[in-house]
Measured scan of single mutants.
Amino acid sequence: ENVVSAPMPGKVLRVLVRVGDRVRVGQGLLVLEAMKMENEIPSPRDGVVKRILVKEGEIVDTGQPLIELG
């Protein structure tokens, strides 16, 4: 699984990683606000951040690609 998608609609509050960062399974990639709750979106696997597909403040839909892992 190379693309991390939004599990719910919401607003991207914070991106916690940068392109080139090594991440571990379960590590927070970004914080999504949904229904006034902050939800940290975890990495599904170990890898390297290849691309960040959203910006802070952006509104996303369920299933929208957020981050690509390499």
Score class of each variant (00 low, 15 high):
residue 53 L to I: 08
residue 29 L to M: 09
residue 60 V to F: 02
residue 68 E to Y: 14
residue 42 P to E: 12
residue 18 R to L: 09
residue 19 V to W: 07
residue 53 L to Q: 02
residue 14 R to P: 10
residue 65 P to S: 13
residue 40 E to H: 07
residue 57 G to C: 14
residue 66 L to K: 15
residue 1 E to Y: 15
residue 57 G to P: 06
residue 28 G to C: 14
residue 4 V to K: 10
residue 51 R to G: 09
residue 33 E to Q: 01
residue 9 P to S: 07
residue 30 L to Y: 04
residue 62 T to K: 06
residue 32 L to Q: 12
residue 53 L to N: 01
residue 69 L to W: 05
residue 59 I to T: 12
residue 61 D to P: 05
residue 29 L to H: 13
residue 36 K to R: 05
residue 22 R to M: 06
residue 36 K to A: 07
residue 40 E to G: 11
residue 65 P to R: 14
residue 49 V to Q: 06
residue 3 V to A: 02
residue 31 V to M: 11
residue 33 E to R: 05
residue 44 P to N: 04
residue 67 I to F: 07
residue 49 V to Y: 12
residue 39 N to T: 06
residue 64 Q to C: 14
residue 1 E to F: 15
residue 63 G to E: 02
residue 20 G to E: 09
residue 64 Q to H: 07
residue 29 L to D: 15
residue 54 V to G: 10
residue 69 L to F: 09
residue 52 I to M: 02
residue 38 E to M: 09
residue 55 K to M: 12
residue 47 G to S: 02
residue 46 D to M: 10
residue 29 L to Q: 07
residue 39 N to M: 04
residue 27 Q to T: 04
residue 66 L to D: 15
residue 62 T to V: 06
residue 3 V to H: 06
residue 65 P to D: 12
residue 42 P to L: 08
residue 21 D to S: 10
residue 61 D to A: 06
residue 59 I to E: 09
residue 17 V to H: 02
residue 9 P to Y: 03
residue 50 K to I: 02
residue 20 G to K: 12
residue 15 V to F: 04
residue 11 K to S: 06
residue 16 L to P: 02
residue 22 R to W: 12
residue 34 A to F: 02
residue 55 K to R: 04
residue 34 A to K: 03
residue 41 I to G: 14
residue 65 P to G: 01
residue 45 R to Q: 11
residue 19 V to R: 11
residue 16 L to M: 12
residue 70 G to A: 12
residue 52 I to L: 09
residue 46 D to R: 10
residue 57 G to Y: 03
residue 26 G to E: 03
residue 22 R to V: 08
residue 13 L to Q: 03
residue 66 L to S: 01
residue 32 L to M: 05
residue 35 M to T: 04
residue 70 G to F: 08
residue 69 L to Q: 06
residue 7 P to V: 13
residue 48 V to S: 12
residue 24 R to C: 13
residue 22 R to C: 13
residue 24 R to W: 08
residue 70 G to V: 06
residue 33 E to V: 10
residue 17 V to P: 00
residue 61 D to S: 09
residue 55 K to G: 00
residue 40 E to S: 07
residue 9 P to L: 12
residue 2 N to Q: 11
residue 62 T to S: 02
residue 66 L to F: 13
residue 8 M to D: 07
residue 17 V to N: 06
residue 41 I to L: 11
residue 40 E to K: 05
residue 45 R to S: 04
residue 64 Q to A: 08
residue 59 I to L: 04
residue 13 L to N: 10
residue 57 G to V: 08
